[in-house]
């Protein structure tokens, strides 16, 4: 049973690696930020699969930090000063 979990985790990991191409070639920084967000979400998926497969339930806390990290990095990326909001 745990073999299936690790196999799906490998599939997700390969999908993340392919998504990294968008970070490298992405034409605008918004594309790169989007790819980083995909990385965070897929990383949570991999950790959720790895936690029962390795028998370490604390990995779900790491997944929680990943979720926070995606939100914080997007907020830091789109940050504006007050008064600069209108186009």
């Amino acid at each position: 049973m745990h073999e299936i979990l690790i196999a799906v985790a490998i599939i997700l990991l390969i999908s993340m690696s392919v998504g990294l191409i968008r970070i490298v070639i992405g034409p605008t920084p918004a594309d790169r930020m989007m790819a980083a967000q995909l990385l965070g979400t897929s990383g949570i998926g991999v950790l959720a699969l790895l936690a029962p497969a390795l028998g370490v339930p604390a990995l779900m806390d790491v997944a929680l930090i990943f979720a926070l990290l995606a939100a914080v990095s997007v907020a830091a990326f789109t940050r504006r000063r007050v008064g600069q909001d209108r186009p």
């Binding site: 990294l20 970070i23 980083a36």
Partner: peptide
Amino acid sequence: RRAVMLFIAFGLWLSMVWARLR
């Protein structure tokens, strides 16, 4: 800026390596 994005991705990935090492 591309280097910073790649650094963030690298940090995520390294964190997954630590998770794999239990």
